[in-house]
Nucleic acid binder design. Structure first.
Lengths: 209, 209
DNA sequence: TCTATTATTGGACTCAGTACAATATTATCC
DNA sequence: GGATAATATTGTACTGAGTCCAATAATAGA
């Protein structure tokens, strides 16, 4: 039984992986992320320290399981879009398809308990790695649709901006806690901001005020 | 003589700090970033290992000296803008003021020699920390101008998008190598993309093609 | 020169992450 | 079922970043 890749989407239930995830979540909440060692996690999970690294490439990976899965699905969605489609609209639609699946129970660990776990700074960096990965996916997609290189300034700017907006939606959604609206609501709003342009979005915001 | 803070903007010439920076730059180019240890750096610099940590909080900080300085200056510029100004225009102007100073010799180490140093993956993450710091600055500024909270979705989306676009400009500028145009050119282009909106920017791009 | 401040150093430590070989466990095929 | 191959788990040993703290050197100011 292969532990599959680190960001596997498939889920053999109650494997070592799951046990480790649960143990980690508990300990992060009890002692904060920073003060929890991998050894403690694997001890509670009843496996050896090395087994941790069979399933996760880094301690912080446990925090982002849900987000990684979402990014995996986005990659698939984008790959399946044929050439010559309206790039932004397709990009948005693909994101919305992925996000519509996400229920309240799928909040990335790092985002839910940012206060409780004292994860603010430590997890920030690892979260940014996800932003970067999503940027890459989007840049590749845009480059393909626009027939430009993926390190073209227009492509990169747009990809980074989109990934940043998506990230903002996740963050605010997670922080809104219980009673939050569906993630797709937040995502739509974030897309609106970058789609119509910051000049109009910000102007509208300040005139309303 | 205080080593000042980690991202000091002032420059006491030929202090331990400078010596360390130079030694690090040499070694990164010779042996790549990953294979260079802090011990090697301080050895060549003729100081003790601990002195490194007097000036830098992490090994990767050496890579981002120039960018950190630019972000410091951006922070100052933004702080000095009075309330009630058009947010996006001021933000853009402040960025351009900072960037107009940057000559060809001020390319962040991490960005120039990304190929030579094999820094691609390792430095990516530390670079993202800068993106985040800039996002925070921009979010605070926008929140003040728009009279909203700095974790508001509109504010965060816009801040992330802007920071992402700025990051793209730096990246492409650095990668263009010798013969590149001034950084401000790239920055203008990146701002245009997010200002006018991705829907028009991307539509224009695909119709041109 | 004396003194307070700050820079530098030494030493000991924790922990994440890597490498690799050894062993256990499960699946597959006959 | 039993042999065998594939994969999961573990043990051991290691590197190197980053932290802490106390000791000492260097410098500035009076």
């Amino acid at each position: 039984m292969a532990p599959a890749s680190h960001n596997a989407v498939g889920r053999p239930r109650t494997s070592s992986r799951t046990v480790i995830e649960d143990a980690a979540a508990e300990l992060f909440l009890e002692n904060t992320y920073a003060l929890t060692t991998i050894e403690q996690i694997t001890q509670r999970a009843g496996v050896s320290r090395n087994t941790f690294f069979n399933y996760f490439g880094a301690k912080s990976d446990v925090l982002w399981v849900e987000l990684d899965a979402a990014i995996d699905r986005l990659a698939v969605e984008l790959r399946e879009i044929p050439n010559g489609q309206p790039a932004l609209a397709e990009m948005r639609a693909a994101t919305m398809r992925v996000v519509s699946d996400i229920g309240v129970d799928r909040v990335p660990l790092a985002l839910t308990q940012v206060d409780v776990m004292g994860t603010a700074e430590e997890t920030r960096v690892s979260g940014l790695a996800r932003l970067a990965r999503r940027s890459d996916l989007i840049a590749d997609f845009l480059a393909r649709q626009l027939q430009r290189r993926s390190d073209d300034l227009l492509v990169l700017s747009a990809a980074n901006a989109l990934s940043g907006a998506i990230s903002a939606a996740w963050t605010v959604w997670a922080r809104d806690g219980i009673g939050r609206r569906p993630l797709s609501d937040y995502m739509s709003e974030a897309f609106d901001v970058v789609s119509t342009g910051l000049s109009s979005a910000l102007a509208a915001a300040s005139s309303v005020e």
